[in-house]
Structures are given as C-alpha cells and as structure tokens.
Design a protein around this nucleic acid. Sequence first.
DNA 1: TGTCACACTCACCCTACATA
DNA 2: TATGTAGGGTGAGTGTGACA
Length: 294
Amino acid sequence: MDFTSLEIFLAVAEHASVTRAATAAGRAPSNVTNRVRALEEELGVELFSRQGKKMTLTRDGRTFRSYASRLLALGKEARDALKPSAMPNMLRVGSMESTAATRLPLVLQAFNLAHPDIAVRLTMGSSEELTRAVLAEEIDCALIARMPADIVDARSEMLDDLDAEPIYEEEVLIVLPASHPPITTVADVRVTSLAALEPGCTYRRVAETWTRPAGSIRTTEVSSYHAILASVAAGDAIGVMPRSVFDLMDWPGAVRIHPLRAVQTLLVCRKGSRSPAVEILHQAMLANPGPSAR
DNA sequence: TGTCACACTCACCCTACATA
DNA sequence: TATGTAGGGTGAGTGTGACA
C-alpha cells in the first residue's frame, strides 16, 4: 500500500469510474484498474462493487475511504512539517477575553522568546464566535470554553469538525452584591438581573441555565468583566465570571461569590490541520498553565 | 441489432535496485 | 559494470452493458 494507490482509490471513489479517475489522475485506465485490484488483494476485501460499468464503493470501501483520506492528509502534514518554510511567520490565535487576561500573557511571552520570527495575532471573541472563525479558517486555533454536556447547545455539533484538547479548567462563579445574603441555590437570589457578556459566552449560558428555575431573573448584557462587577457592586444584579478573572480584579468587600461549577477550556483547531506553530503554542500552554481553578 | 463507452486482461516496456 | 529481477507503466484487444 502506498500513497499513489490511495490517491487512485480515492479518485475512483470520487468519480465512480475508472476512466474518469484515470483522466483526473493523468494515468492510463488499465493502470487504475491494476492499482485498485492490487489494493483489494492486499486488503483482502472488495473495495468496489462492479455493476456493469459502474464502480460503487462497498461497505468496506466506504470504511477504507475514510482511512485513505486521513492517511493522505497525514502524509501531507508530515511532508509539510519537514519543509524549512513550513513554519508560518504569523500565527492567528483566538481567545476568550477571560483566558487572554489570565492565562495567555505567560504563554505568549514563552512563545515569543522561543520563536521571535513568528508573529502572533490575537483575536478576542466568545466561544461561539471563535469556533466559527476556526471552522472558517479565519484563525489557526482558539481557546474556547466547552459547554457542559448537560446543557443542550448546537455548538457541541461544531466540535465534531474540530480537534479539541482540554487545556485549562475554570471555576465559574456567581458574583453577588456584598449586601446580598449568602446563597445555596438559585431560589435564594434576591435580585432580578444577571449581568453577563454576549450570548455566545459559555459562562453566560451556564449561569442562565442555573437561573432558569427561578424564572424571574433576566440577563443584562454588558461589555466587560469590569462592567459585570460594577453592576453587581451597585447592588441590583448578580454576575457570572470565571474565578481566574475574579482573582485578578480588586473589589475588596464590594461583592461576595458563590461557586457554580467547573468548565473546561479547550484548544481547538480544524481536524488534521494542527500546524507546527500551533503545536509549539500548545506546549507553551502546558508549560505555563497560569492560575488553577479552586 | 449495431454502436458506443467502459472495465478488464495480458503482453510488453521501462526503471530502480540488488548482486556477482 | 553487467545482469537479473521486481514493480509499475502503457496500449491493444476483448467482453459487457446501455441505448437508439
């Protein structure tokens, strides 16, 4: 089995025709026939069902097509990785505001020291925006918050098309006014407003899922974590943010906190397209985890 | 039934590699 | 360096199915 045989196999699978596959591959049809036959003999299965002139993939053929595609992609990635020019001079990274503020400074410092020749362009956004940007190839990778499995969300399906690896774990907090009595459940909340970031924010979605049983708590959208704390400190709202962000902000005595749940931060990139630069950034993240969830 | 398009077989050629 | 061998390519010939 070699890459040429895999390419010919995929061409026949795509065109459902030896002749058209041969034309596309720039080879004689007999060569295509021989290559496919040899592949079938080697694997010990029929990859195509020959119905007259029509070549259709068998069940085994469909299974093998998936592997053939991945093997070719992996081969290309390996060749690209060995080229001196493989390292891009620009790495486009997406991050949530919270992660950029609490985790990335040390990571980017380490990355820049190791690779001063690669510029990093940081794009901020919600987890939903960043996921779409990775899928659209607008950025190379992103740090997003994984929606907990018990919360139904269309974003979970988008992850099927991405390589996702847990990098950090954030403790999500409900922030209450200092004057508010301590709470154990959402039923204890005495205000009617939840200050949170944009709708695509996973932490907002987690908090809204938590407040839903109360029925009377509306979400007020604000533009920053400082604005969330300001709203809470004013006494008429609760807010949501990760503990790592809360610990960075100095609001002594103005608020109290209620731990909600842990949410994973994922490093995502398109399936099979993790570049050497992204891998270097990944290693920098593992070496510089920043504040840990409590 | 004849024609055309397509898949397959087979003979032959070329090239790379191992060996004397 | 010459020779043998294996692998992979091409092209001619053949069988088969679709279609007018």
